[in-house]
Simulated scan of single mutants.
Amino acid sequence: MLQTPLGLLYVYINNEQVKYNISELPLKPIEISNYKVDARYMIEIDKSQVKSGDIITFMIDTNIIAEVDGGDCLVEAMFESDDLYLAIGGYDINYHKSQSNSAYSFSVIKNGLEAEIIDLQYIDDFRVAIAWSDTNKEDYYTAVWFAADPYI
């Protein structure tokens, strides 16, 4: 289980806690930039556990309420305190596919992200990234925003 500075990260499928895999990602999400975060991880679950209609929840055990952020297809749950900025990000492909070809839909919830699985046949890749940075760093918001993008 991943221990973030705000609390543990839990993953649930239909309100039942599941194990997940954590992979470290480069701290500079874009090599040609100067953006660097304190930590950055890819969160993956075993897709064989998932079926159409399931709800997957990525939740931080914190009292800080997530704000909605993102852009284009990126949906991010952003948490901010005086000392830390943390984001969990996923791609909502509903922005690019017609409703009949949708695979899943992300939304920000009070303490994280939630994904509704619509149709497994369209899921080739399902990724969620998490990143955080000390707010004393220069342009920490932009750094965390990019770092929580699971495709960068």
Results as ranks from 00 to 15, higher is better:
residue 1 M to S: 06
residue 1 M to I: 00
residue 2 L to K: 04
residue 3 Q to C: 13
residue 4 T to M: 05
residue 4 T to Y: 05
residue 8 L to I: 08
residue 9 L to G: 02
residue 9 L to W: 08
residue 10 Y to G: 10
residue 14 N to W: 00
residue 14 N to P: 01
residue 15 N to M: 01
residue 15 N to R: 00
residue 16 E to W: 03
residue 16 E to P: 06
residue 16 E to A: 05
residue 17 Q to P: 04
residue 18 V to K: 12
residue 18 V to Y: 08
residue 20 Y to M: 10
residue 20 Y to D: 04
residue 21 N to L: 04
residue 22 I to R: 15
residue 22 I to V: 12
residue 25 L to Y: 07
residue 25 L to M: 14
residue 27 L to I: 09
residue 28 K to D: 13
residue 31 E to K: 00
residue 33 S to E: 04
residue 35 Y to P: 02
residue 36 K to G: 05
residue 37 V to Q: 03
residue 37 V to A: 07
residue 38 D to L: 01
residue 39 A to C: 13
residue 40 R to G: 09
residue 40 R to C: 11
residue 41 Y to W: 12
residue 42 M to C: 10
residue 42 M to G: 10
residue 43 I to V: 15
residue 44 E to D: 06
residue 44 E to K: 14
residue 45 I to C: 09
residue 46 D to L: 05
residue 48 S to N: 12
residue 48 S to C: 07
residue 49 Q to C: 13
residue 51 K to F: 11
residue 54 D to F: 07
residue 55 I to R: 08
residue 56 I to E: 00
residue 57 T to Q: 04
residue 58 F to P: 02
residue 60 I to M: 02
residue 60 I to L: 01
residue 63 N to V: 01
residue 63 N to D: 11
residue 63 N to G: 06
residue 63 N to S: 09
residue 65 I to H: 03
residue 66 A to M: 03
residue 66 A to E: 09
residue 69 D to P: 07
residue 70 G to L: 01
residue 73 C to P: 00
residue 73 C to G: 02
residue 74 L to A: 09
residue 74 L to K: 00
residue 75 V to S: 02
residue 78 M to Q: 12
residue 79 F to R: 02
residue 83 D to F: 02
residue 84 L to F: 06
residue 88 I to N: 00
residue 88 I to K: 05
residue 88 I to A: 05
residue 90 G to R: 05
residue 92 D to T: 07
residue 93 I to G: 09
residue 94 N to V: 04
residue 94 N to L: 07
residue 94 N to Y: 10
residue 96 H to C: 03
residue 96 H to D: 03
residue 99 Q to M: 09
residue 108 V to I: 03
residue 111 N to L: 02
residue 112 G to L: 14
residue 112 G to R: 08
residue 113 L to T: 02
residue 113 L to K: 09
residue 114 E to D: 04
residue 114 E to K: 11
residue 117 I to K: 14
residue 119 D to K: 11
residue 119 D to E: 01
residue 121 Q to I: 01
residue 121 Q to R: 12
residue 122 Y to A: 15
residue 123 I to V: 11
residue 125 D to G: 15
residue 128 V to K: 11
residue 129 A to P: 13
residue 129 A to Y: 13
residue 130 I to L: 15
residue 130 I to D: 15
residue 131 A to V: 11
residue 132 W to E: 15
residue 133 S to F: 03
residue 134 D to N: 12
residue 135 T to L: 14
residue 135 T to C: 13
residue 136 N to L: 11
residue 137 K to Q: 05
residue 138 E to I: 09
residue 138 E to Y: 11
residue 139 D to M: 13
residue 140 Y to E: 11
residue 141 Y to E: 15
residue 141 Y to M: 15
residue 142 T to S: 13
residue 143 A to Y: 03
residue 144 V to N: 14
residue 145 W to K: 15
residue 146 F to W: 13
residue 148 A to W: 12
residue 148 A to E: 15
residue 149 D to Y: 07
residue 149 D to I: 06
residue 149 D to C: 12
residue 150 P to N: 10
residue 151 Y to N: 13
residue 152 I to A: 12
